[in-house]
Every structure is written in C-alpha cells, then in structure tokens.
Design a protein around this nucleic acid. Structure first.
Lengths: 194, 194
DNA sequence: CACCGAGGTAGACAGCGTCTACGGCTGCCT
DNA sequence: AGGCAGCCGTAGACGCTGTCTACCTCGGTG
C-alpha cells in the first residue's frame, strides 16, 4: 500500500539515497542497504550485479535532484544571463553543502560506472545550461564560450570541493563561500554591471 | 646495504608511495603493502596503528613531492609574478596528471587524517606561495588578495580534478587543459600583458 | 646469566563484495 | 485441473579487508 511496496529495485535505491545523505558515501555498502531494506544480503544482486551498479543508480538520483533544483532556480530567476548564472552557481554550491555525502559520491568516478551507464548523460545537460548562459554573458574579448564555460564550471566545482572539506576557510580566512563565488563570477564574466 | 635496509617504517611508506603511483589509491591496502615489503600483515601496525595513519604518511610524501616540484619551478622561472603563477599552475596540473593516483589520495580527506596530523600544514605553504604571487599580480580593482588567491586556487584545483577524470574534454571538446588554464589565469589576473 | 622490552609473526574476528545452489511462489500451457 | 517453467529472494561459502591479541625471538643491560 505504501510507496515502498513498489519493486525492490526502487526501494534499494531509495534506501541508498537516504543512507548516503544521512551517513555519507562510506556507509553505503550493499549489505547495509539490503539490511535496511529488510532483504537478504544477496537480494540486491538481482537488480544490481555489482556494488558499482547500485552506487551509480544512487548517484544518478543525486544528479537528478541537483538538476531539478537548478531548473527550479532557473524558473524563479529573471532573464538576465549574468543573474541566472549567479543563481545557478549558488544553487550548485548550496547543493554541495546541503548534500555533502551525495555530492561526494557523485564525483567519485572510481566508485561509479561512468562508462556505459547513463551517468554522464545525466550531468551533461547541466553543463549545457551553463554553456548556454555563458555564451550569452560572454564579452567579445573573452575566450571561446566552451572554454570559458569549462573554466567557470571548474572554478565552481573547485570552490564546492574545497569548501566542502574545509580547506578554504583555513587558508583564506573567509567565513563563507560567498566572497569566493562572487570573485569567481566577476573574474570569468567581468565586473558586475552597476 | 641498499636504501630500504633502513627502518621498516620508511620502507612501508616507500612501498605505499610506489603502489599508489602504480596502481592507484584503491590498491593501497595495509596487507598489500606489508606483502610487498616482505613482512607479515600485522607488522605495519607497530608504526601505523590504523590504515588512515599509513595513508596519511603516503599522502604527505605526495605533498612533499608536489611542493618540491613547485619550488623547483619557482627557481627556474623569472621574477614576474604573473609568469611565476602561470608556471606554478602548469606544474600543479602536470603533477595531477602525472601522479593521478597520488593526487587523488592527497585530496581524499575521508581517507586521510587531516586533523591531528601535519597534513594540512604540508599543503598550506603551497597556498601561501600562491597567495603571495597573487598579491603581487593583483590589480587594484580586484578582490582582496586572500579571496582572489582562494578563487584562483579553487579554479586550478577544479581544472585538475575535472580533467583528471575526463569530464572536461567531453563537455568542452577541448583536447588539452592548456586553454582552460590560460582562460582561468586571464580571468583571475586580467588579460595577458601583450 | 637472567631478564626485559622492542619488533615482527600468526591466528582470530567481523565486515565487505561476489558467487552459487537452492526454495518457494506465480502464472501459463496443455 | 495438473504440471511445469521462470522470476525472485534466501542462505551459505569464499577470499579479501582492517583490527585486535597472544606469542615468539632477538639484542642489550642489570
């Protein structure tokens, strides 16, 4: 009757997502998920032949969540590309901070099946949004849009990463990532208009 | 007689470094290192009570190597801060590419004892060098030096990270990270003087 | 000479991912 | 209605891991 009466496959992923959000990537073992799902340790194997397969499914859920949040943000914010990029960046950083375990998992390519699975296809649209906005916000003297977008994306990701594990405040003395984010945006897109 | 006749402690670290360089972070188990060092699986425990302790010692070696390479570069390059920063960045990216497994380990804070050990103290001087150079290269209108340096560092790290696992070429179509690096430097430090 | 402690050995334990043989249930076909 | 096949989950085994503990074996000192 309840929602988790649906197939074991979905239940396993749901339990895994919950687990990674709550306790971090290292807690997400096949056996632990099986335990919390109330099935035997061998049960997941029918749907996820290897650990990697299950982790990938969980990470995909994370990408879907992130994408959804970005889309939500894009719906709420005005048409100016610069403003939209700022809002997108904020959303990205907020996601990393709020779902640290999931964020970590999402970019642990050694744990994920980034090859044959549709994982990269799940993160690419997100980059496409950035690239598109960058294209619009780009100044004539800037690097090509693809390069500029890549650099900005890398900057964003680096901030999220370093921030997540507390390296940055220690080095910069900053108490929040906002200054860094603004600096990055201004660096790549030029000074804020006004 | 040979160098590895010295204490087991040093030999274990050396074997670990070799192993992580050769086979990546996931291959570095206590037992495997012990095996390759020709001792029983319990032997490392005398010097490294836990796995984390050994991994931290290995990562510290990695930081020392990176620092040494950066210092070497700093010795070879001219006095212009902008040029020095560019060279430093190149060295950083080259290190990440050439020692991927080690680079990965160095920033796996979940595997490392980033707290009580001297690990962070090992990476901080490096940031200090960046901060110093940024201070010199900084334009008046730029963000405060600490923030600017943090943003640039994050950008550099993000490029290294994304590049290392092949996310960037796929998204940007770039065939090397040079364009990205140049874009990042120009973004944070202004257009190249001629 | 006896001793003692540093340093390495070896066995045990629980946990992990993976593999395989097995059981029960469902639904279809004759 | 009877029998059979296939899906789905169980349960035990294997080899691996990190950690703990009891032991043994030296070399140097009292």
């Amino acid at each position: 009757m309840s929602a988790d009466e649906t197939g074991l496959r979905a239940r396993l992923v749901a339990v895994g997502v919950d687990l990674v959000l709550r306790e971090g990537q290292s807690a997400v073992s096949l056996r632990e998920i099986a335990r919390r799902a109330g099935v035997s340790h061998g049960a997941p194997r029918r749907y996820f032949p290897t650990h990697v397969d299950l982790l990938s499914a969980i990470a995909r859920e994370g990408f879907a969540d992130l994408t959804a949040q970005v889309e939500q943000t894009m719906r709420e914010v005005g048409p100016d590309p610069r403003t939209r990029l700022t809002a997108l960046a904020r959303t990205y950083l907020d996601f990393a901070a709020a779902h640290r375990g999931m964020f970590e998992l999402m970019f642990r390519h050694d744990l994920l099946d980034s090859g044959r699975l549709r994982l990269r296809e799940t993160s690419l649209p997100l980059f496409a949004v950035v690239a598109d906005l960058v294209e619009q916000a780009r100044r004539p003297t800037d690097a090509p849009a693809a390069v500029l977008a890549g650099a900005l994306w890398a900057n964003l990701h680096g901030i999220a990463q370093l921030w997540a594990w507390g390296s940055l405040p220690l080095a910069t003395g900053a108490t929040d990532d906002d200054a860094l984010l603004r600096a990055a945006l201004e660096a790549h897109l030029g000074p804020t208009p006004t």
